[in-house]
Design a protein around this nucleic acid. Structure first.
Lengths: 312, 312
DNA sequence: CCTATATATTCTCGTTGTGAGTATAAAGCC
DNA sequence: GGCTTTATACTCACAACGAGAATATATAGG
């Protein structure tokens, strides 16, 4: 013990640090995945962690409700990072951000400059419903190849090919963050400094600081989690049809799903039960209405759920 | 923008917070999973995040090398939490811990009171190699049942049964944290206040503050990660036999694995290549020596690896 | 040398999971 | 009624996987 204390005494001592809480709030409406933004789409809801907050989550909930007027439901922690770029030069004041993911049902926002935005506005290359977006073949791949050539080994191109599913490799929808960081590194993205270069404008709407990176982390997490944990239901209205559920999953994953197989998997796992009613919506045979089986939540929270989004 | 700033002005303002970095360092030796401890097994390596640290990871590496003398290899972030219990009463000084997981090859420690300890000393109920430990049926299950009865609904017992695989449910080796928190809630664990109650002594070695909770988080993470990411190799010597690799996986997972199937999966995925040599170890037919295929690391880091530890 | 024993490695088999396509049902619309 | 549209059910082939049996190659001991 004494040994340890002496060792510690020589070392850097405790110094206060500014801590920010940042929220990635996700909802889905009309088959479009949405993220809550403030400042007219330029930032995620966030604010400093303060003494009167009883916990990190409590602080986050406070900020979100204050800034957006929306109460939070399901919340989980995402990642913590030191803002290396953002607050540089603020004179010895280290700053870290603790980010959280929240899943909600979309409700129109009242606060001005605050509201839901389609997340594919920020990541246009991430939506592969109906096939890979042209943007990848037309802009991203050539630009990345140029960038790769300016490096020494073939490592850069290899990374790019894996991340974007180039050269016959399959698309892995979970690599959202890797793709963003690759584009950042290649300076193809507005947030990277010299980004007045060609192409930056096409590559998605920018955000302040590292908020777009945080959003990428959030998208990656939802996409991963949705496969083994019944969190999709946090995004759904209490009653829904199979197709609505499927569209929601497809929106999140950015991938198309085989309809009969989707149904089979959901029913096999007994995630839902029929309400007995049916919905006459868009023409065609009426769909049965389902609700989530509440009993499943606690069991599956641990045990896991499967959705047909496996690697190819 | 202006809108937001006014809103923020009314709200809690930025206040400095003490930030701690804590490391869960894992190694495996002789089929025993180990964790690096300081203070004679009572604490994990940790120290405050300070201004001179260029990044969170850099700060962590500094602390670990200072306290243990071991250089760090693979590191990933675990979780960030506010120390609700630990520093209570330090007069308005909020404190948060950012925890990291590191994987190493075990090397004897020189620093006194510092060294590797079997992690099952801290979590004796987690080792299911050779069947579920008696401890669960003899002590944990009855105590939890008593605790459950003192609650109103059946929810408590249901949670306990899921977490510990009671009543014919299968054991899920990833629920390390849920199990620890359940035992904590039921006050069966030394760290919980009134824990001079019967049974606490059997339920693993305690640690200071919430270090055992952090360790539980780390174990859960390695157990999950090992299944889809080739991180096992961080724990292995450069050359190894199939059985050594299998024992390592079994040690981490706390489960037995079917030998032929383990081999099949590893070879199918081309994770390893033969060195050409063979090892004459413990009697019996000599085993071929393998090494990890380096090319796999970057590919699989993204794509994923499989180990035969699927749910039953 | 031969046998027992121990571990390594390969094979086989039955079950389940899953991708993909096809067939049938029930509504509205003309 | 026939056509279109969506919902729901069924089929089939193949890959993945758990479990056990069979075979190979070493050491130890009589």
């Amino acid at each position: 013990m004494t040994q340890q204390k002496t060792t510690k005494a020589k070392a850097p001592s405790a110094q206060p640090v500014a801590v920010d809480l940042t929220a990635v709030l996700v909802a889905v409406a009309d088959g479009r995945p949405l993220v809550m933004t403030i400042e007219d789409g330029w930032a995620l809801p966030s604010g400093p962690f303060a003494v009167e907050h009883r916990s990190l989550q409590a602080g986050l909930r406070g900020w979100v409700e204050r800034q957006t007027g929306h109460p939070l439901g399901y919340v989980e922690q995402l990642y913590t990072f030191a803002d290396s770029d953002r607050r540089q030069g603020v004179e010895g004041a280290q700053a870290i951000s603790i980010s959280y993911l929240g899943l909600l049902q979309a409700q129109p926002s009242i606060v001005p400059l605050t509201g839901w935005r389609p997340w594919y506005d920020y990541f246009p290359w991430e939506d592969h419903r109906g096939g890979a977006p042209q943007l990848i073949a037309k802009t991203i791949a050539p630009e990345l190849r140029r960038w790769a050539k300016s490096g020494e080994t073939g490592a850069r191109w290899n990374r790019a090919a894996i991340a974007f599913g180039l050269e016959g490799r399959g698309w892995n929808e979970e690599l959202v963050l890797q793709r963003y960081e690759l584009l950042y590194e290649a300076q193809l993205i507005a947030e990277a400094q010299q980004a007045s270069r060609k192409g930056a404008a096409e590559l998605g709407r920018p955000m302040i600081g590292d908020h777009r990176r945080i959003l990428a982390t959030g998208i990656a997490r939802v996409r991963a989690k949705i496969k083994y944990n019944p969190v999709v239901f946090e995004l759904m209205a209490p009653v829904f049809t199979m197709l609505q559920l499927q569209r929601c999953v497809e929106a999140i994953a950015g991938l198309d799903v085989h309809k009969p197989n989707f149904r089979r998997l959901i029913e096999q796992q007994q995630l839902v039960e029929e309400t007995g009613e049916s919905v006459t919506d868009t023409g065609g045979r009426p769909a049965r209405a389902f609700r989530f089986r509440a009993a499943v939540r606690e069991e599956r929270a641990a045990a896991g759920t499967k959705l047909p989004l496996a690697r190819s």
